[in-house]
């Protein structure tokens, strides 16, 4: 079996109005991973997904889905893909069961009521199977769309902003479902601008901004590379001014009650005991020491500045 789920080379997309949504994307997504595409609004996330799934026509570039070119061999390429778009688009008057069965048929798969039943049960939709979609809540509609996307048993699932406008409870259950999917071998590609989502879910993260992939790294590597650590010294007496300690980046917080030392976790040029000695020489004695790690959010802001 091919170890690469998706391979994109030199992908460009300029819309008719001249807007360049994708400015040369090269990306490889491995089978079985959860890949998060992170970026601000208008960064090109949805265009990139659209180009892979056949909804957007690229201006240039090549896309292979499980080794199949998505233009010349579009049937095989699209068979492997399930797409859950960002906007809730459903056939309001259809029943859940019919709409999911319809999706399976579109992809040319023979009827399989047992599979659809299992799918609906897994997504907690089974007791709503005969309900018209317009009578469902927003969260349920979202799950119906996921069921439609999975109805033809795809190898790759695209989730475009799966948890936009979804409450915390439901978001957590969706994350659990995505993880369960990954365990069955499905490759999941999700876009989000909730950084906590990427941090929570993804094995690898691609940060996209203005149509370019700024960075593609495993989550841990990204955190290591870009992650800043901070040592917070909670002081006994507030400091009026910043003590001068050469070679150390220091700052004051909370009216001089906290002294903050910022350093890069992956560099070896820091030495806490040395700093403590130097501080103690200036008669600064911390009551407590806390350590902080920068979140992906900070990394993100740092990257797209």
């Amino acid at each position: 079996m091919q170890s690469t789920a998706i391979e994109i080379t030199g992908l460009h997309k300029t819309y008719e109005n001249g807007f360049q949504a994708l400015a040369g994307i090269d990306l490889e997504i491995k089978r079985g991973e959860i890949f998060a595409l992170l970026g601000p609004n208008g960064a090109g996330k949805t265009t990139l997904i659209g180009a892979i799934c056949g909804i957007v026509q690229p201006s240039a570039g090549k896309i292979l889905v499980c080794g199949h070119d998505n233009v010349t061999d579009y049937r095989a390429a699209r068979m492997s893909i399930g797409l859950v778009p960002q906007e809730l688009a459903t056939d309001a008057f259809e029943s859940v069961w019919n709409t999911v069965s319809f999706s399976r048929g579109l992809f040319g798969k023979p009827r399989n009521p047992a599979y659809i039943e299992e799918l609906l049960k897994k997504l907690s939709l089974w007791d709503k199977k005969d309900e018209q979609i317009r009578r469902l809540s927003g969260g349920m509609k979202r799950r119906v769309m996921i069921a439609k996307a999975l109805s033809h048993e795809p190898d790759i699932l695209f989730l475009d902003e799966p948890t936009a406008g979804v409450d915390v409870e439901l978001r957590k259950s969706m994350w659990a479902q995505v993880r369960a999917l990954q365990e069955t071998g499905v490759t999941v590609i999700l876009t989000t601008h909730y950084i906590e989502e990427a941090e929570e879910m993804a094995n690898r993260i691609g940060v996209i901004n203005k149509g370019r992939l700024v960075i593609t790294e495993t989550k841990d590597a990204l955190m290591k590379k870009m992650g800043k650590r901070q040592m917070v010294f909670v002081l006994r007496e507030p400091l009026a001014s910043l003590p001068s300690v050469p070679d150390y980046t220091l700052a004051l917080e909370e009216g001089g009650n906290k002294l903050i030392y910022t350093y890069n976790a992956h560099q070896d040029d820091h030495d806490i005991s040395d700093l403590l000695e130097k501080l103690s020489a200036q008669n600064i004695r911390p009551r407590e020491i806390e350590s902080r790690q920068s979140s992906l959010e900070d990394i993100f802001i740092q990257l797209i500045g």
Binding site: C53, I55, R75, A76, R78, I81, A89, D91, A92, G108
Partner: peptide, 16 residues
């Protein structure tokens, strides 16, 4: 109608 409601995405992304 599917263009209007947005469900056309499914037709376009299907192997048809």
């Amino acid at each position: 109608f599917p263009r209007f409601t947005g469900t056309i995405y499914e037709i376009l992304s299907a192997p048809l």
